[in-house]
Design a protein around this nucleic acid. Sequence first.
DNA 1: ATTTTGTGTCAATTTTATCAAACATTATAA
DNA 2: TTATAATGTTTGATAAAATTGACACAAAAT
Lengths: 103, 103
Amino acid sequence: MKHVPAMSIVTERVLKQMGNQIKLARLRRNMPTSLVCERADISRMTLWQIEKGSPSVSIGSYAMVLQALGGLEDDLLLIAKDDVLGRTLQDLGLKRKQRARKV
Amino acid sequence: MKHVPAMSIVTERVLKQMGNQIKLARLRRNMPTSLVCERADISRMTLWQIEKGSPSVSIGSYAMVLQALGGLEDDLLLIAKDDVLGRTLQDLGLKRKQRARKV
DNA sequence: ATTTTGTGTCAATTTTATCAAACATTATAA
DNA sequence: TTATAATGTTTGATAAAATTGACACAAAAT
C-alpha cells in the first residue's frame, strides 16, 4: 500500500475484524502459527500482520493462508458476489455495457 | 508476494474469479476505472491487476476499491466467518484455547 | 463513418512489503 | 509453580509491489 492516511476508519475496522476471524479459524483447528506459515509458504511475520489486520499484505498471502487452514479459500468468492445495489442500478440502466459510459 | 510457484492452481482460479466479480460490480455501476481509482486512491494499473486477479495486490487496495464501489467492503467480513469445519473440530477438542497446542 | 473516451498493457522508477533473526512475553502443560 | 513452547514485536536488508507515463486498441456516442 502506498500510504495509510487514505484508509478510512471503516475499512480499517473491517480488516481488523477479518484478521481476527482468520485467527479464530486457526485456533479452532489448533494450528500453531508456524504450521500455517509453513503450509502457506509465508513468514511468521506476515501471518502476524494478517491476523492483526494490516492493510499492506498481499491478497495472495491471504489466499494461501485460507487454503492452509483447509478449504477456506473459497470464501474469497463471496466478495462482490451478491451485489444487490449493483444489480438494481443495472436494471435502471437498460442494456449492459462492456465499458463504463458517462450519464 | 514472494514467489508465484507456491500459488496453487485452485487459488489462482479463485483470485481470477473474484477479480472478475469486482469488475462486473464496477460495470453495473457504470463507473470508469479512472473514477474508481481516484476514489480508492490507487493507480489504474493496480485496479487493472485486481480485476485480472493478480495475487500481488495488497488487501488494503482491495478494501478501498470495494469501498469505492459503494458499501461493498463489508463483504470482507464474510471471510472465515461461517467456519463450519472449524467449529466442528473445536467441539471435538472440548475447551477453547488462546494458543495452539500439540495433540 | 468518425470521434471520443475507456481500456489493455508495457517499461522504468520509487516506494513498500516480506523476510530472517533476534528477543520479550505469556498461556499451557507438567 | 516451574518449564516449555507459542505468540507478540522490533529491526535492517532485500525482494517485490505500486506508481507514472506512455501507447495502441476498441467500444460507444455523435
